[in-house]
């Protein structure tokens, strides 16, 4: 296993732990949630096989579900995110294409690209998650405000992580 492989293997558990120990207790104004664990799927290398991506997404979602007592919800939302991710990546390929072996990171592709990449994906994940949890479109406005503010919260955390994490940045 290469060095990045080991790092990715470890980061799986780090994201999971941070989510269920820290972020589970951090909900702002009863509406803004932070689901940082999706960053694991967001930042896997660009050429990652979509099948592997979905299986990893399912396992990660399933483990988070155990802690949230919401069996299946996070799993289905994250599998959807993993399924859509590679299509979205190929749609927004910058001029000249991606560098080989590069992750879809801020450092590699710039802030503007990163905004376009991350926000829709985070939104899709949160949208699915909250509407599955609400069990339909009964509380449309309220659920939408949860989706909206949580997307902002998660995105800001992901962005912060991009600036902070060592090893992901090209020096």
């Amino acid at each position: 296993m290469s060095r990045t492989g080991i790092w990715q293997f470890l980061s799986f558990f780090i994201y999971l732990l941070v989510q269920v120990v820290l972020m589970k207790n951090l909900v702002l104004f009863n509406t803004a949630f932070c689901f940082i664990y999706i960053a694991f799927i967001l930042f896997l290398p660009i050429e990652t096989n979509i099948l592997l991506l979905m299986v990893l997404g399912f396992v990660m979602g399933f483990l988070v579900d155990i802690f949230y007592d919401s069996l299946g919800m996070h799993a289905s939302a994250l599998v959807l995110l993993a399924f859509v991710r590679n299509f979205w990546l190929s749609r927004i390929t910058p001029q000249g294409g991606y560098d080989a072996g590069e992750g879809p990171t801020l450092a590699a592709n710039g802030l503007q690209w990163f905004l376009i990449y991350a926000i829709p994906l985070i939104f899709i994940h949160h949208f699915t998650l909250f509407f599955i949890e609400a069990g339909g479109f009964g509380l449309l406005g309220y659920t939408f405000s949860k989706v909206f503010f949580s997307t902002i919260f998660t995105f800001l955390t992901v962005l912060l992580l991009q600036y902070m994490l060592p090893g992901q940045r090209r020096s």
Partner: peptide
């Protein structure tokens, strides 16, 4: 694969909604 995983997740959600159970996969 996407379809299979999503269906499995949906089955889990429905299962979990049924009240009262002794299950392993929860907190």
């Amino acid at each position: 694969t996407f379809l299979v995983l999503e269906l499995f997740a949906a089955w889990l959600i429905v299962q979990n909604n049924q009240y009262q159970s002794t299950k392993f996969f929860n907190s």
